[in-house]
Amino acid sequence: MSVTTETKKALPLRVLVVTMYDGPDPARRLESRLWLAGGRFDREVAVSGLPAESPVVRYDERGVGLVVTGAGEANAAASLTALVHSGHFDLRGTYILVAGISGIDPAQGTLGTAVWTDFAVHGGAAHHIDARELPDGWDSGYVALGADRPGAPPAWGLGHEVFELDPRFLRAAYRLTADVDLADSEQAAALRARYPEAPANAAPMVRIGSTMSENTFWSGPLLSQRARRWVSVFTGGRGQYCTTQMEDNATLLVLWRAAAAGLVDAARVAILRVGSNFDQAPPGGRPQDAFGANDCWDLAAENAYRVGSVVVQDIVERWTVWEHGVPASGESRRPPPT
């Protein structure tokens, strides 16, 4: 494998896959390792500012690249800022796919469910009051910035509270992957069987939904209820909370600023999140039981790759269809085998 520290000319990429994990935990690092195992990433470019454990962008002759940002908002923002402004890659025509694991609302999906994101909403840019000191009549300690009560819309913001992903790319990605054969496991089946209703206790599927970003790994039905209302408020009722993770609003802020500078095409960005754990314990369980003891990180990583790779493959194999923008609905369906 060749390693390059400098490039004379910015390399155009057709697709850039963004993953978050590549650390010591064997299950979590599958998020990036499955892409490496399934691809032909025989070239590397070292990029200053990427994580020490993943300091290079890997790419292949098809124009597909892979970067690992590190987990959490700060890592995602720092890594993508370094990449976008490194000068090593020309990303103006690149399709960018963020693919990773997430918590999932049992009312919206199950372990292994793959969710194409329509809205990313930041859950941590807020006022917060400890639950032991809630005013009378309040059902939550989370209040939007500048608001005077839970559920009220914000009066001011920070500029990264909500992002809408391009609907045309979203629909194309969903059409291509709605019938993908998803992985499942006995462990996941046993865990989901503890939930009394579908879709939590049903088989995983591919769907569209909204995600909430927050560095806090929270758990419990009351906080899930808060997330549902939070997403609804910030999207004007258009979004439905489905998954939760730590990076996506930071990632999108970097990419949207890059788009404003003409470095990235925001209409070519998609986010795929797959349920690795429920955002609450089953009925009768303890909220803290959801903190990693009952997760399926490996299953989620597998399905993120299975679903995401279908879109990547279609883009590179039919580049003449995708090159000038997301194709129309009929063109974005894979032709049947001959």
Results as ranks from 00 to 15, higher is better:
residue 123 G to K: 04
residue 124 G to T: 05
residue 126 A to Q: 09
residue 128 H to N: 15
residue 129 I to E: 03
residue 131 A to Q: 10
residue 131 A to T: 09
residue 132 R to I: 12
residue 135 P to N: 12
residue 135 P to Q: 05
residue 136 D to L: 06
residue 138 W to S: 07
residue 139 D to H: 14
residue 143 V to E: 08
residue 143 V to Q: 11
residue 144 A to K: 09
residue 145 L to M: 15
residue 148 D to V: 14
residue 148 D to N: 15
residue 149 R to T: 06
residue 150 P to T: 07
residue 151 G to Y: 13
residue 155 A to C: 12
residue 157 G to T: 01
residue 158 L to A: 10
residue 158 L to F: 03
residue 158 L to E: 09
residue 160 H to M: 04
residue 161 E to S: 13
residue 162 V to Q: 07
residue 163 F to Y: 15
residue 164 E to F: 05
residue 164 E to G: 00
residue 165 L to M: 08
residue 166 D to P: 11
residue 166 D to A: 14
residue 167 P to G: 10
residue 167 P to E: 10
residue 168 R to L: 05
residue 168 R to D: 06
residue 169 F to M: 14
residue 170 L to T: 01
residue 171 R to G: 05
residue 171 R to Q: 15
residue 172 A to W: 02
residue 173 A to L: 06
residue 173 A to R: 05
residue 173 A to C: 13
residue 175 R to G: 14
residue 178 A to K: 12
residue 179 D to L: 01
residue 180 V to W: 00
residue 180 V to Q: 11
residue 180 V to K: 02
residue 182 L to D: 06
residue 182 L to A: 10
residue 185 S to R: 11
residue 185 S to Q: 13
residue 186 E to P: 10
residue 187 Q to H: 13
residue 188 A to Q: 08
residue 188 A to R: 04
residue 190 A to Y: 04
residue 190 A to W: 02
residue 192 R to K: 08
residue 193 A to M: 07
residue 193 A to G: 08
residue 194 R to W: 01
residue 194 R to D: 02
residue 195 Y to M: 03
residue 195 Y to W: 08
residue 196 P to K: 11
residue 196 P to T: 10
residue 196 P to S: 08
residue 196 P to D: 14
residue 196 P to G: 14
residue 197 E to S: 15
residue 197 E to C: 06
residue 197 E to I: 02
residue 199 P to H: 07
residue 199 P to S: 10
residue 200 A to H: 05
residue 201 N to F: 08
residue 205 M to Y: 05
residue 205 M to G: 11
residue 205 M to K: 15
residue 207 R to K: 12
residue 208 I to L: 15
residue 209 G to L: 12
residue 210 S to P: 06
residue 211 T to K: 09
residue 212 M to T: 08
residue 213 S to V: 05
residue 214 E to N: 15
residue 214 E to A: 15
